[in-house]
Design a protein around this nucleic acid. Structure first.
Lengths: 234, 234
DNA sequence: TGCACTCGATAGTATTACTATCAAACGTAT
DNA sequence: ATACGTTTGATAGTAATACTATCGAGTGCA
């Protein structure tokens, strides 16, 4: 495929747009590699600069601090996922089928092996996905959520959940918890993956096998919720 | 009530048992207050020492570092919750009723206003609960999960989820995802509370009203899952 | 009286998380 | 060719953090 869809990011996510220069792109791409290897807490701008062959001060020209870089990466991922959601559900008639696609997307089930055909423009999506699984909640589980939220830093995440909620309502207009169910599915797609890999007794799945048990769980959870009538208050 | 149930904690959670001395108890109780006020990232042992009127070095005699203190607090909370679960579901016949109690427990719905009657021994449970909501996943979402898990640091969490899973299976022996559903309920009790308070568009609930919409959501999610048959693979 | 133990107090180190400044390199407009 | 603006590299420096080590006073107990 020849098209590259550029993801335009909220200006509050950075000091200088990292997609506007070669150094900026390196910061993002090598940042993903570094967070992936060391984890968020052990990564530092010093180490990132050394890996890139630049200086700390240069990185600070792009991102206020390490946490902002994380927020940027996570936001980028959600924007990518939202685009994929729109693209993959386009022209589908059945909301049921759309929901099925969404679950597969959340688990990154149908990622092409050819990196350039995923519209990721040199970004290692599998690595980014594993970072999102382990670190994404640290983006918003902070004492300063409210200020960050005011700057719209979490809009990509909220937009994605909003779209999922809309499709849930297409399928079942009477379901009263569409937003909560949407965020539950997104979070659980990641948490159950993490548990499966690292704390397996918290799940019913084997990490080794590739038979989509987690997908079945999410599917069952979703459609069970949509099928069961909700009792109205008297 | 006159009984104080002492929670015995895994020795790997601390260097010196904080319940064995006055200073240790202060570290735990004031640690809860500090994490609550500043959030985990902004809290330091220096600030904690100042607040207690002791020195950094003394705190390091009890806990290796700030992260271990967090893990301890979170583990303590899960042990407390497990005890409450056992106590509150004791003698109940209907698994359905047990599950209902569990959901209320996860949301801390029936906490007595008299602090001493909750078996918390001077620990501010509401504050601790709010810390667990915001910080608990940071206890295990790290690059060193596996080592920490090997030291059984997350056993209290896994034990609690295990008990919930067992009761799920009492209610519905054929349900194949009991563990995952249990961890989903526990995580979502917290995440949806956090979202409701700070990122409300991710939920369907109003933080102001006290009409248990979140409880209804969790209840619906749980029983919908247990009622829907699971299709067997051919 | 002596011993074990805890804690307070002080000191010190390495790393982290930045901020400031200046000059070299580069492309562009004139 | 030159002047200009922008980006980066390079160096320096500060304040805070995350520890570790040592010593001595106080306390309780044998």
């Amino acid at each position: 495929m020849e098209y590259t869809v550029h993801v335009r990011m909220n200006e509050h996510l950075f000091l200088r747009d990292p997609e506007s220069s070669e150094l900026g792109r390196k910061i993002v791409r090598q940042g993903i590699a570094l967070f992936g290897e060391l984890g968020f807490e052990d990564a530092t701008f010093r180490k990132l600069a050394d890996r890139i062959g630049t200086k700390e001060a240069s990185i600070y020209r792009y991102f206020e601090n390490k946490h902002r870089l994380l927020v940027y990466l996570v936001a980028w991922y959600w924007r990518w996922a939202e685009y994929q959601l729109i693209f993959q559900t386009n022209n589908l008639k059945e909301p049921h089928e759309k929901l099925e696609r969404i679950l597969r997307l959340l688990l990154l089930k149908d990622l092409s092996d050819a990196p350039e055909s995923n519209g990721a423009d040199g970004i290692d999506l599998k690595m980014l996905h594993s970072i999102v699984i382990r670190e994404a909640s640290k983006a918003y589980l902070t004492h300063h959520v409210t200020e960050d939220n005011r700057q719209q830093l979490f809009k990509p995440y909220k937009d994605l959940c909003g779209r999922i909620a809309d499709i849930i309502l297409e399928q079942q207009p009477d379901y009263p918890f569409a937003r909560s169910l949407a965020s539950t599915l997104v979070e659980m797609a990641h948490y159950q993956t993490f548990f499966m890999q690292h704390l397996p007794s918290l799940t019913d799945f084997k990490a080794a096998t590739n038979d989509d048990q987690l997908l079945e769980f999410l599917r069952h959870l979703l459609f069970a919720s949509l099928e069961k009538p909700v009792l109205e208050q008297a």
